[in-house]
Design a protein around this nucleic acid. Structure first.
Length: 107
DNA sequence: CAAGTGACAATAA
DNA sequence: TTTATTGCCACTT
């Protein structure tokens, strides 16, 4: 075990995101132990070596917004996916992190 | 082996 | 308030 790569850890955390909730890149980065590598969290998801196991669509910006132009074919698609999971969207098109933030207060 | 690249986040102006 | 810039460090070629 031991770090097989920083990415592996990201996948593991993202995999733990329960349905109906979302986590931000920065938060996932912090969960993997590297709050400064928020960028690579997204990069790891971009690699998406395990489609179907890593719910990349549950990972959003710190603002609650989706990846700008690099979602699965369009942020609109991702938005639909999140709605399908039970995520609530605000009028601005942002995820209601106030209600769907996964690491809500640490568990 | 070295350089470039990259789904963000935080701070400054 | 929004926009622009910097920092960060692993992974790819």
């Amino acid at each position: 075990m031991e770090r097989e790569g920083f990415f592996e850890r990201v996948y593991e955390v993202v995999e733990q995101i329960p349905k109906g909730m979302v986590a931000t890149y920065g938060q996932v980065a912090k969960l993997v132990g590297e709050p400064r590598k928020a960028r690579y969290v997204g990069f790891a998801l971009h690699s998406n070596p395990r489609p179907g196991e890593v719910p990349c669509h549950r990972v959003v910006f710190a603002d609650g917004r989706l990846a700008d132009g690099f979602a699965f074919g369009g942020p609109d698609v991702q938005r639909e996916m999140l709605e399908e999971e039970g995520i609530v969207f605000r009028a601005d098109g942002r995820v209601d992190l106030d209600a769907c933030r996964w690491p809500a207060g640490l568990e």
